[in-house]
Design a protein around this nucleic acid. Structure first.
Length: 282
DNA sequence: AACCGGGTCAACCGCAATACC
DNA sequence: CGGTATTGCGGTTGACCCGGT
């Protein structure tokens, strides 16, 4: 994978740089160096830590994987809903920092993770529906069909979830309360998180236990978008959806949330009906 | 058991903005 | 003020995994 690197900068010429997946040793070296010296100045940090990596690579590895407050594990339905909502608000404008901006509202999630989620899951549905992900039709489909369904799934999951859900190793509590002005800008936002970052040097044992934890996270969101026809209040007890779209047929599907996946929001019949609707509207 | 195709996600790349000298 | 280094972003790639055949 590494080796013939013809694009090396002059700064990188004196050292054979590693590429590809990080090893445990590299991770530990980076973690321990940052614990001692702090982050920033990534190129010099990489050299000082003895890592044969670019500064960019070190920065990416730290911010997206090793940072103590990075959450691992599947994107939850609540998070998916929030991503879709925020993307529907911001995705149509020339926002240079769309993903990082959305990431600010999902504590512990990185822009890269959210971007991946969007591309793999949301764009997949656009493909299924044979419409452009930026089209009004698809956006309407998301808003009036997908999001209410997500809300129902969250409700269903909350209703069937056991009262005690196993050990919780990480606790996140976020409150997002936002109003949209006429330019779709958030006019009021508050966000907090009670992650407790670790900054001390760690051993390899700590390293592995850290990788194994951080799955079971409780989120508590309050999202209220005024001026548009949607609003949510959801937490780990359940969800209230206050959608304004009267044409949503919320009660016609009994099966779509029965599967314990986050993706299969509609079946073959759904897709056929949606395609018909989209074609008729063109 | 082997192969294949699709999905996922960590990692890299190019570029623009910003900081620094 | 201009050149260089650094940072941070979105887009893209490719390795890996998993289910189906």
């Amino acid at each position: 994978m590494d080796g013939n690197n013809n694009n090396k900068t002059s700064r990188e010429d004196d050292m054979e740089l590693r590429r590809g997946p990080w090893t445990v040793e590299e991770d530990l070296a980076l973690i321990n160096y940052i614990a001692t010296h702090g982050e920033g100045r990534w190129n010099s940090l990489a050299r000082s830590a003895g890592l044969k990596r670019t500064g960019k690579s070190c920065r990416f590895r730290w911010l997206n994987y090793l940072r103590p407050d990075v959450r691992r594990g599947n994107i939850t339905l609540e998070e998916q809903l929030l991503i879709i909502e925020l993307h529907s608000c911001w995705g149509n404008r020339q926002s240079l920092d769309l993903w990082s901006k959305i990431a600010q509202y999902l504590p512990g999630r990185t822009d890269n993770e959210i971007k991946n989620c969007w591309r793999t899951r949301v764009q997949k549905h656009a493909k299924q529906l044979k419409c452009d992900v930026n089209s009004k039709q698809f956006k309407d489909t998301m808003r009036y069909l997908w999001m209410p369904r997500l809300v129902e799934r969250i409700q269903a999951a909350a209703a069937t979830a056991p009262t005690t859900s196993g050990p919780t190793t990480t606790t996140a509590s976020a409150v997002v309360f936002s109003d949209l002005d006429q330019s779709n800008n958030f006019t009021h936002t508050s966000l907090n998180s009670n992650f407790t970052p670790e900054t001390s040097a760690i051993s390899s044992d700590d390293y592995y236990s850290r990788q194994a934890s951080s799955q079971d996270v409780n989120l508590d969101y309050h999202v209220n978008f005024q001026g548009e026809n949607c609003g949510y209040v959801f937490n780990n007890q359940g969800v209230d959806y206050q959608g304004g779209a009267d044409n949503i047929e919320k009660n016609t599907q009994q099966q779509w949330y029965a599967e314990d996946t986050t993706d299969n929001l509609w079946n073959v019949e759904d897709i056929y009906v949606l395609q018909q609707q989209l074609n008729n509207s063109l």
